[in-house]
Design a binder for these strands. Structure first.
Lengths: 194, 194
DNA sequence: GACTAAATTTACAGATTGTAGTATAATTTA
DNA sequence: TAAATTATACTACAATCTGTAAATTTAGTC
């Protein structure tokens, strides 16, 4: 079975859809560690062996579903023929399109992005940074309690903490090409607005 | 065994350290799905049954290790007695302390935060957003190619893409308390600097 | 040295995994 | 429409993993 090219056979489409739906359902109900091929096949009313005709294992299935997700998002962006030449207008449109795409498929995205799929460590660290940034923002905006420069407080917190942890992770992945002090300076430069 | 309070017995400390080291080692070598209690115990030169004397299962062990991690980080911050009263100076110091703590324990953090523990979906989306933001930044700074306002380009990209995806995830978790358009406006307000 | 608690050893039932071979059903093509 | 192709179902199997139990040995504490 040529996995990515030939898949017009309605049986293939149906089977994969059933498996995907079953997997998303199960992700809502339990942690991923508890999801077995057995359970997925059972929920999908598909024979377990058939699963292996389509996917190597569960991680492989997740990769394929993620591939489809990226395709969907690309479509939702309404990219003009070439992706290079873009105006500020297009920039705004793309961002809105992206967010609306998430809103329309919120059920799916909430499960695969926002449920407890976030590994425990990143999650804990994110919580910690969120606390710290909350303190910092509340300290700054003693008067402008709720909004700062027209930015909603909670959104600024989400933004700042995610940016922080994400940058740290990227920095670690690249084997720390900058010193801690340099990176810290960069942080202060970038968040000088919020 | 009172898990968090009484653990002065050197045997307990030794066993948990061996289990933790073995787990971190295995995480470097293979995906988490392939890590079994069997393998951990084997690598730790500890009887498999002993694992269950300390942890319910692997996710439980990860939680406990994450607890310890948060404790460590808190210590590294050098919080002054009270955490509330802080100056801008303290803010800077904390940030530097945090980054230096990561640098000192990079081996551990790189494995638990920066290896492929990031779930496939978030990872894929992060890659996509990184591409988009890279385009945007390169478009803006046609002249100021490498640095914008003194901010390193790659760092600005890490920062912006992480902030974007993190905010979206938080927004989804909260069941989208803002409309897509409103959220998009907030994004433009916050990144108006970068 | 006696007492206490942790770790080991052995054993077991139940579940999961991945693969194989054959049979049946659905789809496509000539 | 009939034949050829391909997907799915069914049954079965060995290997591994899980979680728990009981009895024993080892190490630490008082």
């Amino acid at each position: 079975m040529d996995n990515r090219t030939i898949r017009t056979d309605p049986r293939v489409i149906r089977t994969r859809q059933l498996l995907k739906d079953a997997f998303i359902e199960l992700l809502q109900e339990m942690d991923i560690e508890k999801i077995s091929v057995n359970r997925i096949a059972e929920r999908a009313t598909i024979n377990r062996v058939t699963f292996y005709l389509h996917y190597k294992d569960i991680p492989d299935m997740m990769e394929k579903i993620a591939d489809d997700m990226i395709e969907d998002i690309h479509r939702s962006l309404n990219m003009t023929s070439e992706s290079q030449p873009m105006t500020e207008e297009d920039d705004w449109t793309m961002l809105v399109n992206l967010l609306e795409h998430f809103a329309e498929n919120a059920k799916f995205y909430k499960v695969v992005l926002a449920s407890r799929r976030t590994p425990i460590f990143t999650e804990r660290l994110l919580n910690l940074l969120t606390e710290l940034i909350t303190l910092r923002i509340e300290r700054m905006g003693g008067d402008a309690a709720l909004t700062t420069n027209g930015v909603q407080k909670d959104i600024a917190i989400w933004y700042g903490s995610s940016a922080l942890i994400g940058t740290i992770v990227a920095w670690l992945r690249k084997d720390m090409p900058y010193t801690p002090v340099f990176l810290a300076k960069q942080f202060t430069l970038m968040r000088s607005l919020s």
